[in-house]
């Protein structure tokens, strides 16, 4: 079982990002995936998070205990959730928004300028989908093909193209960051 926490501040689309990860795993990767999210006043404007469990077997206990993968898209989210991770867990951050400090244990840190890349392709609102692409390439917890299938029905129709582009930006960045591809979109796709 993999336990993930996707965090950021309210409005960044981190819950949507978690939703698409779960949907990809459950509907297109043929796994079981349970999404829960934090509700309450603390979710608005400040740190909020979505939790996703992914497993080959049916999931019984519905909540994340100690996540093995944490995505943080804001400093506050990183400060709140960044240390609550397994010793050999994987941290993914938006490098322009999070100063991670020292990463201890066997934890791995991967950074992407998700918001900057989103702005470059036209709208910072898709920073969450850049992060989704990055997450997919770095962790391999969901497949790129499945994510591309899940994406169009998970975002507003008129923004499908922008979101697909954002996904590819993040995906390519992730392949390069993990050495799975040298550079460039073609190399990234070939590698997959």
């Amino acid at each position: 079982m993999n336990e993930l926490r996707i965090s950021g501040f309210g409005g960044q689309g981190v819950i949507r990002c978690g939703y698409i990860i779960g949907k990809t795993a459950a509907l297109f990767d043929n796994k079981h995936a349970t999404l829960t999210q934090s509700f309450g006043p603390e979710a608005r404007g400040s740190a909020c998070s979505a939790q996703v469990l992914i497993d080959d077997k049916p999931i019984r206990y519905p909540y994340v205990s100690v996540p093995d993968t944490v995505v943080a898209m804001s400093q506050e989210a990183y400060d709140k959730f960044g240390r609550d991770i397994t010793d050999d867990g994987t941290l993914l951050i938006d490098e322009d928004l999070v100063k991670p400090g020292e990463v201890t244990g066997n934890r791995k840190l991967y950074a992407v300028p998700a918001t900057r890349l989103a702005e470059q392709i036209g709208n910072r609102i898709v920073a969450n989908i850049v992060m989704l692409g990055f997450f997919t390439a770095v962790t391999g917890l969901i497949s790129g093909e499945a994510a591309r299938e899940a994406l169009p029905s998970s975002v507003p129709e008129r923004f499908v193209d922008l979101n697909m582009k954002a996904f590819e930006e993040g995906f390519e960045y992730g392949l390069v960051a993990t050495g799975k591809a040298v550079e460039g979109k073609k190399a990234a796709l070939d590698a997959e």
Binding site: Y19, A26, H32, A33, T34, L35, T36
Partner: peptide, 9 residues
């Protein structure tokens, strides 16, 4: 609440 706000296939 747990079932109501839990997302699954």
């Amino acid at each position: 609440e747990c079932v109501g706000h839990m997302t699954e296939k």
